[in-house]
Design a protein around this nucleic acid. Structure first.
Lengths: 233, 233
DNA sequence: CGTAGATTTGAGTTCTGTCAAATTTTGTGG
DNA sequence: CCACAAAATTTGACAGAACTCAAATCTACG
């Protein structure tokens, strides 16, 4: 099956610079002169910014398939994209190149516009999550998102990578690292989550996790019920 | 001077349905089948959604010039656009129409893509504001945004329309209506704001208001230092 | 002028943040 | 492979900001 991801990849690849990243690798997007686009191929990334004085804020999670142009990031100091996963790959190119290509290729233009709209919807949903839910519900939302995106069905439940530190989670969900720790402990106690090795979690039941988050249906619709999670036929 | 707004308007007008709105008028965007686009001509609008059970959340403020396609809103129940201003005008058309037009017109495509990127940047900035600032700072951020967008220089300072109720502000900033009331009272006490008639506020000094919000520079960059606010030459 | 709705304000509660100490994990060198 | 230092996480005690509930005002409008 040819996906939108494939089409975008095929068209942009010849004009892209491949960047292999390791954890904490930082990409510096340009907003204006020589505006850049980053196309995420694999791995999880974070858009972050500094809030004066001495604070950091995660603006959003960036997943494979996402297309991030510099102008779509706010003009905050220290705005950058950092790799959360141990390894990942990003393609970098200039927005002017993308403009030239989409002017010739309506299909590409459509896929890129759709991608940007989806990402805007995710940002808005994240607004709703942070603004409208309790700490516990927010953490459940994040776990659900990662489980749906990267989880794999195993004997004990859905196993997924958790590349974010407590501090990252806190900055993403507008909580405190200590509070996040408490909430995760509580969730382990309620059997909503279990740790396997470090950096990996198991969710025994996605349904129960979804119960813990009022906005779970919307998260599922935007992050997809991944094929890997379906019972094997 | 021909602005991007003019170009977009000129091209889309023949294909649009004009909608004149009054306060609390609700527009229902379609996400999928017959996906809609709303082009804001005048007035302030709110994107809102319901959070089960019995809660509402404002996803973002929508200003004149903004282009809102259905797919850029999250798939939450009760997602809609409501008019905040007493009167406003919106043009409604189908996204498929916009796609057909942009395929023929690279300039239009560029302006629309830029607009969507700016709006994404605003969403991300709003994330940072709600997630990273105190209640007082958030309210200052909102007041600054509205003052920059719609303010006019008068003898006593910058006068601007405040079409949002305390409840709206609370839902937008993730606070409680009572708390918003307290914060605004405190700001009046500190001379950061004063009320003229109902629905209108005066800010004696935008600089002092900006001092009260750590992210003021980014807000100013995204919402512009409006010409009306410049001292008359 | 009177009523319905919005706003303001007070009192008490709860959740989360702050700080500090204990514990676990990770990375490095022997 | 083990020991040790550095970093991250967990947990407790306390403080503070924001929420809830309720009553008092204020405003809009018929």
């Amino acid at each position: 099956m040819i996906t939108a991801f494939d089409i975008v990849s095929e068209r942009l690849e010849p004009h892209s610079v491949r960047v292999a990243t390791r954890k904490r690798h930082r990409l510096a997007p340009a907003r204006e002169a020589g505006e850049t686009v980053h196309v995420i191929r694999s791995g999880l990334y974070l858009a972050r910014a500094a809030i004066p004085p001495e604070r950091h804020q995660i603006l959003g999670l960036i997943h494979p398939g996402d297309i991030v142009r510099g102008q779509a990031l706010p003009p905050l100091d220290g705005t950058e994209i950092t790799a959360a996963s141990e390894q990942g790959e990003v393609w970098r190119l200039r927005w002017s190149t993308v403009e030239a290509l989409t002017a010739q290729d309506a299909e590409l233009a459509r896929h890129i516009a759709d991608r940007c709209a989806d990402q805007a919807a995710r940002l808005a949903l994240h607004n709703a999550i942070v603004a409208g839910l309790t700490g516990d519900e927010r953490v459940a939302a994040l776990m659900l998102e990662l489980a749906l995106r990267t989880g794999r069905k195993t004997a004990s439940g859905v196993t997924f990578e958790m590349p974010l530190s407590r501090m990252d989670i806190a900055e993403h969900l507008s909580l405190n690292a200590d509070t996040v720790s408490r909430i995760v402990s509580r969730m382990r106690g309620r059997q909503l989550l279990a740790a396997t090795c470090r950096d990996h979690l198991v969710c025994p039941s996605l349904d129960e996790l979804a119960q813990a988050c009022p906005l779970a249906p919307a998260i599922a619709r935007l992050h997809g019920t991944h094929a890997r999670l379906e019972p094997v036929a």
